[in-house]
């Protein structure tokens, strides 16, 4: 890809050792991200999306995990760094927002302390300066009366407020990449809308790249530039958000989209289901991971694993032997 590559992931594999065997949570993922771009990673539980996000950070328990592949961040290879150097990146250049704002904050530490802590560590500012920056930050993320809230504990705040605090902590050191792992799943819809808007605003203002991990196609649609759909540890389809929703090429993407109940449909509309359940990542079947649940699967799908390919539209790639939808305008394929 010729775009200015800010983050590049090459053939990343992450697996865990468990009692039942080796779980291939991420199984050969290649991705890239431009500066200021927002990438959505969509998948169901067990698709490897969260593990992928954590692998980028290098935040996985080292004991039972093996990670191969390369991750370049701003031209530097993250995968080659020792934890000492990585720590300079964590928080400072790459920051993470977690799913559960209830547990991601330290319950016995005041909000202000949690926001300023990393600033003092990474940016060499003294406590007073850090407080000034933090107060400004808290205002930006929409905390009313930040001066008063500064000395509060997390349990004194609502879920949405806590997630705002988490975002403030993530933004504190001015990261250039924000990894948001299901940032709104634990929140109510009305609050979710607020948080998503906040993230979009901050991203635009800071020219920050963002990876938004979610299970909700709706969240991705309005908040990302590009989307990668994951299933069984692999990327099934990736494209510009607009072209993905306009022309879904992978049967899984299509099926996932169709199984969401649509408000526009009259009630008692029968939902399209994806039969079966996600594959077991301990002993995944050969071939396409989705083959067992796919309407279009053939013997080839069950034996040969498809790789990401493009078809006309060079920015739209999919891993499928029998793509659905409309073939891209340019380019030729002899299927």
């Amino acid at each position: 890809m010729s775009r200015d590559e800010f983050l590049r992931i090459e053939d990343l594999h992450t697996s865990f050792k468990t009692g039942r065997g080796i779980v291939r949570a991420v199984d050969g993922v290649t991705l890239s991200l431009a500066r200021g771009e927002s990438l959505g990673i969509v998948g169901e539980s067990g698709s490897g999306k969260t593990v992928l996000a954590r692998s980028i950070m290098g935040l996985l328990p080292p004991r039972a995990t093996t990670r191969t592949g390369k991750i370049f961040f701003n031209g530097e290879e993250l995968t080659a760094m020792d934890s000492e150097r990585l720590r300079d990146y964590w928080g400072a250049q790459i920051a993470m927002v977690f799913q559960d704002p209830m547990t991601a904050l330290n319950p016995v530490m005041k909000i202000g302390r949690q926001v300023t802590e990393h600033m003092i560590h990474h940016m060499n500012v003294d406590r007073d300066n850090a407080k000034q920056i933090a107060l400004k930050l808290l205002t930006e993320v929409g905390i009313p009366e930040p001066g008063k809230r500064f000395d509060d504990y997390p349990h004194q705040m609502s879920g949405g407020m806590r997630q705002r605090i988490m975002i403030a902590i993530a933004l504190a050191c001015g990261p250039s990449l924000l990894l948001a792992d299901e940032p709104t799943t634990a929140l109510d819809v009305t609050v979710q809308a607020q948080i998503l808007r906040l993230l979009a605003e901050q991203r635009a203002e800071r020219n920050m790249s963002m990876i938004l991990v979610t299970h909700d196609l709706g969240v991705v649609a309005s908040n990302t530039d590009r989307v990668a759909v994951m299933y069984g540890g692999r990327i099934m389809e990736t494209a510009k958000t607009a072209s993905l929703f306009a022309n879904m090429r992978h049967p899984y993407t299509k099926a996932l989209f169709d199984s969401i109940p649509n408000l526009k449909n009259p009630s008692h509309t029968e939902l399209t289901v994806i039969p079966g359940r996600p594959p077991d990542l301990v002993n995944p079947p050969p071939g396409c991971k989705f083959a067992a649940r796919c309407d279009y699967a053939t013997d080839q799908c069950r034996s040969e694993e498809p790789t990401l390919q493009t078809d006309g539209d060079t920015e739209h790639s999919f891993a499928c032997w029998h793509p659905v939808g409309v073939r891209g305008k340019a380019g030729v394929s002899n299927a």
């Binding site: 809308a193 196609l217 709706g218 649609a221 306009a246």
Partner: peptide
């Protein structure tokens, strides 16, 4: 209005929450 619609062509409605 808060429910995210899986359709990027629909602009996020500016809801005053």
């Amino acid at each position: 209005d808060s429910i995210p619609i899986p359709d990027p062509t629909i602009e996020t409605r500016a809801i005053e929450t």
